[in-house]
Design a binder for these strands. Structure first.
Lengths: 131, 131
DNA sequence: TTAACATAGTTGCACGTGCAACTAATTTTC
DNA sequence: GAAAATTAGTTGCACGTGCAACTATGTTAA
């Protein structure tokens, strides 16, 4: 119920979960990011990132490389195969977005985004107060 | 990132995931539902339901009871403890909804719901065509 | 009535996630 | 310079999920 992009990709012969897709997206923009930075920009915990990178490494999409200057840090790189799969997946992603937005006006899409931001703000407010 | 209701509940000392909450909600409306019906109305797969009921049974929230007339079927019942926890959780849930909607007009909330329905329609269209 | 089919539920495997505890490396502080 | 604190990442445990294969029970059709 929560994996539509991944499902759609699969129906097109692309074996990527939406999380893996997002990581590829950010690596494609700037390869070799620190694992921690990836966690931040993808809005995920370091634990989640560790395991996401594990599976992506097993699938040969990315590779870890320990930073020489600070050996605590991993830099994550796209493999050639990862780059290739991204190139195949991205156009499919754009199609999905198109199809999901059928029959919805530009204004309504913007309004939904605004409402979502407000809800996010309300969540932040609450979780900050409670901790 | 996806468990706000569950997290909020936890901060109030209520140990329920949002999925468990939803199951309690439907059992509270009508106790002893068939497992399959629960899967349908909660919009989950039979596998997901099996495992959800497993954990809820372990936690003592619900109990399975094999149907005498058709031994393939399980009826799911709230335990007294499950009923009690629901009674505690529901008011908290209402508060959450209130807080999440702060600063958002009634009209905007309705519009978001409409947009979500349209997206759902677009998904259904696509997944029907592709299978 | 028996073989074929359908239905309800479970299980193994894989994926993504959070929390808390942990290791290892680097900084800070005294 | 050594102890304490911080930072990056991993691991065990638990939860929810999908898919495909499976068991068990019921229904249908020849």
């Amino acid at each position: 119920m929560d994996y539509y992009i991944g499902d759609y990709m699969k129906s097109r012969g692309i074996d990527l979960s939406k999380e893996q897709f997002i990581v590829l997206k950010y690596l494609n923009e700037s390869d070799g990011r620190k694992q921690n930075d990836l966690a931040f920009i993808t809005n995920r915990s370091k634990t989640a990132l560790t395991r996401l990178i594990n599976t992506m490494e097993k699938k040969g999409l990315v590779s870890r490389s320990i930073c020489e200057k600070d050996m605590r840090i991993n830099h994550i790189y796209l493999t050639p195969s990862g780059r290739e799969i991204w190139a195949m997946a991205y156009p499919v992603f754009l199609e999905i977005i198109q199809e999901l937005q059928q029959g919805i006006s530009e204004e309504d899409i913007l309004l939904v985004q605004e409402v979502m931001k407000q809800i996010q703000k309300n969540i932040n407010l609450k979780t900050t107060v409670n901790q």
